[in-house]
């Protein structure tokens, strides 16, 4: 059973279809990036998953529990960090977390232990007595993440958790998210910082104008979009000589110069690629660098979306 299953949800605001028949799943222990241009419908989808909004059609199952039919049960299983949330300014970090721990029904020592655990997990232990209105943006993000983890949910939905964080805080957030993933939790994370997402996500869902454009592993989407791989090769010989040799090869196209070597599109499999290297060596071309181009989330994003604003 998927940890989070979005089943054909549609949400309209007046005439605007903010979310249109969106379906995807997130498995336990996997981290799914949710990307799309501004106004694509990410926040709306996430709010529906978090029981905060109602879809016009469709349903969302959290660990098999419908957010429409059993919202209270679903809330126990999911943690949601909104993109834009407030915190009570005249409370300390400890009091804030203690309040939500009480709300989740944690009692006595268990409550104290849980608050200690989440503060140390988010490195807030030292700041427990600080008042919230004195915290920086990054500290507040951590606090909200700590709050989201209090009841140990199996599904975490984070709406732009990295917004406004400095580079170090982002790296730390990434480590936190990875740690959560390895604890077996399912995570759905929206972000505009694609390099960040690419490093932590197992899969992505791409949405634009309310429609889901693609979903799955980054590599798989890449394969679907571009059936060929991009290969870079540099050899200890003249570039023209290398180019001539390459052009005689099958399943190979679009040879172009890149940095000190050449790049080309290749449609063959790995076996064929190995034989290609053998032939180059046999011709005495001495290849010193031979690399498959990395799959870039930006490229996928740019080729899928059209930048339409709605």
């Amino acid at each position: 059973m998927s940890a989070l299953e979005v089943r054909g949800i549609t949400k309209t605001f007046r005439a605007l279809k903010a979310v249109d028949e969106v379906s995807f799943t997130v498995e336990p222990g996997s981290i799914c990036g949710f990307i799309g241009p501004n106004g694509a419908g990410k926040t709306t989808t996430m709010r529906i998953c978090a029981t905060l909004d109602l879809p016009d059609h469709g349903d969302v199952l959290v660990d098999g529990v419908s957010v429409l039919e059993e919202p209270r049960l679903a809330r126990k299983k999911l943690g949601f960090m909104p993109d834009n949330y407030g915190a009570y300014p005249h409370t300390t970090i400890r009091e804030y977390l203690d309040f939500y721990a009480r709300a989740y029904g944690l009692r006595g020592k268990a409550r104290k232990r849980t608050v200690d655990q989440v503060t140390s997990f988010t490195s807030l232990g030292e700041l427990q007595e600080k008042l919230i209105h004195t915290l920086s943006k990054g500290m507040k993000q951590r606090l909200c993440l700590a709050k989201t983890m209090l009841h140990d949910p199996s599904v975490l939905i984070l709406d732009e958790p990295a917004a406004g964080l400095d580079p170090r805080a982002r790296v730390e957030l990434r480590e936190l998210v990875k740690a959560l993933g390895s604890m077996g939790k399912a995570l759905l994370i929206s972000s505009h910082i694609l390099t960040e997402l690419a490093e932590m996500c197992d899969g992505v869902a791409v949405i634009e104008s309310g429609k889901l454009l693609a979903t799955g592993r980054v590599g798989d989407i890449q394969k679907r979009l571009q059936p060929h791989a991009t290969i870079y090769v540099r050899a200890l010989c003249e570039r023209a000589e290398l180019e001539k040799a390459l052009l005689e090869e099958p399943e190979l196209a679009n040879v172009r110069s890149e940095r000190q070597g050449l790049a080309f599109d290749y449609t063959g499999d790995d076996e064929a690629l190995a034989r290609l290297v053998e032939r180059l060596v046999a011709r005495g071309l001495k290849p010193v660098e031979f690399a498959g181009g990395e799959v870039k989330l930006e490229d996928i994003f740019m080729s899928l979306t059209q930048g339409k604003l709605q």
Binding site: A50, T51, L52, R72, R75, K76, L78, F80, P82, N84, Y85, G86, A87, Y88, P89, Y100, A103, Y104, G105, K147, H151
Partner: peptide, 12 residues
């Protein structure tokens, strides 16, 4: 102050 959503999704 935008705290209501957090109350709703907690078990209150």
């Amino acid at each position: 102050e935008n705290t209501f959503d957090l109350l709703v999704i907690s078990d209150l």
